[in-house]
Nucleic acid binder design. Structure first.
Lengths: 207, 207
DNA sequence: ACATCTAGTGAACAACTGTACACATTGAAA
DNA sequence: TTTCAATGTGTACAGTTGTTCACTAGATGT
């Protein structure tokens, strides 16, 4: 009974990536996941793995690429829904929290990868964050906000904002997704963090 | 030739913990380290492990306790050297960076543990950070800084400061310890982050 | 129609893993 | 001095791991 029946192209590849994310979502750390474990979770024979990835690290790298897409979707939604400047922070944080809950496994992978084992994955996630920060700087310029800041100071501010939000990720992911109260607490606190930062940016270099 | 010659009590225990940290320092992620690997690195037979720890997670928990000591040492040094308020941020960040470099492996373990596999280790590190933040709040009160802030707002600010510094950790640890230039860059950027935050705190609720 | 390529299968293997057990040595308590 | 708990060692074993190999069903290009 050997031999594979052809399905949709790339189907197994997707199954393997989803399987890895599922394991991460179950609490496993990506660095401790092995090939056999992923294929078992995906319902595929171990050998199949090598048809799509050279190693688990390779799979991780491709997950980072998909993570980039998730982040871009989130960014787009934020831009569509946050038109005027007031309530900007609250709405953005809300969208972020919603996406973090909806793509829990992806964001868990991201949080793990920041201090992960694979240097390449680490750098990939870092790079996504830099991109995110620079897009944020563009948006603020477009909205005519913080106009008194130099480019470099604006970049610094956006970097800090992104880091703060990323750290909140670990808060969100460490609590049960059904615990609405605690989620709400994190949402409020993150909002206050960002407000504090933007107030600081508003007075930066002007005193 | 079986049988153990008694050495200093707790010597093997220390050797095992140091071995785990060494592996982490070499780039391995704590979640992917096994018992045999630790004992091999420590130059000890695998069975010895069980004399001191129930599992690798257990070892992790005890590492968190030691991490607490490292953090307290750092805090004490900061309090001794930072007497007056001006230059407070720069000196504190300097001390932090120095300690991060001197105890690289410990801080790597910390950065990993924040999004690690063991819930207990995660919570332990989080708890250390909370403690650190509350001590920082005490110090600021003692120095008569940010006196216009309510207790809860001061806590929030200190939380944000600690998070920001913790995130800088991943920056420091991702660059080679000999790359003085890049270390200096991180030091400067972290300082600016904290200055921005404290400016924000200074104007919080007052406009 | 035919050859080729892609993506699947199962069996095999050596290396490594966690853990259990019986035993040895020692410092301190009795 | 005898006893004993603590801490070390060596051997053993069953289960898991990553990876190679030979094989095949179906899609694709000519």
């Amino acid at each position: 009974m050997a031999g594979g029946q052809r399905r949709r192209p790339g189907e197994t590849r997707e199954k393997l990536m989803t399987a890895a994310l599922t394991l991460v979502g179950k609490g496993r750390h990506f660095a401790s996941i092995g090939i056999r474990e992923v294929t078992r979770q995906a319902g595929v024979v171990p050998t199949s793995f090598y048809r799509h990835f050279r190693s688990v690290d390779d799979l991780g790298l491709q997950l980072v690429d998909e993570l980039g897409l998730v982040l871009r979707r989130m960014m787009r939604e934020a831009r569509e829904n946050v038109l005027q400047a007031d309530k900007l922070i609250e709405e953005s944080v809300g969208i972020f929290v919603a996406h973090a809950l909806a793509n829990r496994n992806f964001f868990m992978f991201m949080a793990q990868g920041l201090a992960g084992e694979s240097r390449a994955v680490q750098e990939g996630i870092r790079s996504e964050m830099r991109f995110f920060a620079s897009e944020l700087a563009n948006d603020l310029r477009r909205l005519k906000l913080l106009e008194h800041l130099s480019d470099s100071d604006l970049d610094m501010t956006c970097d800090l904002v992104v880091r703060t939000v990323a750290f909140s990720l670990t808060d969100i992911l460490s609590i049960s997704p059904e615990d609405d109260y605690q989620i709400e607490q994190v949402r409020k606190r993150t909002t206050r963090f960002l407000q504090l930062i933007l107030i600081g940016a508003g007075h930066w270099q002007s005193d």
